[in-house]
């Protein structure tokens, strides 16, 4: 029945949903941060455009649309572009930090271009491309085998660890003034370890699924905590034009959710693969 998802699409849809969430997080976060940076460099609009296109294609896929030839190729080029923009962004952000007075200092890492943020766009692109390939029934993405789910599990584990490291740096900037700020530096690494172990061994441990689910939940809870954090700044929401920018980034934590959902998709693939 055309238009309706086939059972084999379920994992692809989950991964596309995760990719869409990560892309949404990038769009909103980079939107705010690059506005703070006054779009000083015109290239600062690229991640916004890339993530917006990515949301469109990922969401279509997540809702069960088939990726036919033409749109599929277009979507794949969006994902490839996002990986490239993210990689270039990493370079730009490192350059931005190094050119500040004092160079590579804690202060410049804290307050200038966030060093690892563009990697989130690479994650969105990679997850989107994976979902697209799986949706088309492909068993490989380029040279990478997809069917076993292990490569995706490994990638999601790596992405979770990286995102958690970023949270650790910025929560250190906030001096962990609220004990809940430790949660995103404790829970996602557990999920990342479990998922990474699954990727290496091919068997899914018992805590993997709950840890990923917890990470997915804390991504949304984090956004709520950050909204509360914004309200604690002077003037609260009335002063939103300042506090939305300088307060804790509300759109950032849901990228945990997106990656965790993709990780759950990987688990689905692994189970299916194990069943043959």
């Amino acid at each position: 029945m055309p238009g309706l998802p086939q059972p084999s699409d379920k994992a692809a849809r989950l991964i596309a949903g995760g990719a869409s969430l990560v892309a949404s997080s990038v769009l909103a976060d980079a939107g705010i941060e690059h506005y703070r940076g006054s779009f000083e460099n015109r290239a600062m609009v690229l991640p916004l455009a890339g993530s917006a296109l990515s949301i469109l294609t990922d969401t279509r896929l997540a809702l069960g649309a088939r990726a036919s030839g033409g749109t599929g190729a277009l979507a794949m080029s969006v994902h490839a572009a996002n990986v490239a923009i993210g990689a270039a962004g990493l370079g730009f952000h490192v350059y931005n930090i190094l050119k500040q007075p004092g160079g590579f200092t804690f202060g410049n890492v804290f307050y200038h271009a966030p060093i690892a943020a563009p990697a989130a766009l690479m994650v969105a692109g990679t997850l989107g491309a994976t979902a697209l390939a799986l949706g088309k029934g492909a068993s490989r993405l380029g040279p990478v085998p997809l069917a076993s789910g292990r490569s995706l599990a490994g990638f999601a584990a790596f992405a979770l660890a990286g995102t958690s490291a970023e949270a650790a740096v910025f929560h250190f900037r906030g001096a962990y003034h609220n004990p809940f700020m430790w949660v995103p530096v404790v829970v996602p690494p557990i999920a990342a370890l479990a998922l990474g172990k699954a990727a290496v061994t091919g068997t899914v441990g018992r805590i993997t699924n709950p840890a990923l689910t917890a990470t997915a939940v804390l991504g949304f809870a984090g956004a709520a905590f950050h909204a509360y954090g914004v309200s604690r700044n002077m003037g609260g929401w009335r002063n939103w034009r300042q506090n939305l920018i300088v307060g804790p980034p509300i759109p950032a934590p849901p990228s945990f959710t997106g990656i965790a959902i993709a990780g759950l998709g990987a688990l689905l693939l692994m189970r299916r693969f194990a069943r043959g």
């Binding site: 900037r173 906030g174 001096a175 003034h177 609220n178 954090g229 604690r232 700044n233 002077m234």
Partner: peptide, 9 residues
């Protein structure tokens, strides 16, 4: 540089 009790950053 971060909230503290009722004091704003």
């Amino acid at each position: 540089s971060a909230p503290r009790g009722k004091a704003h950053p």
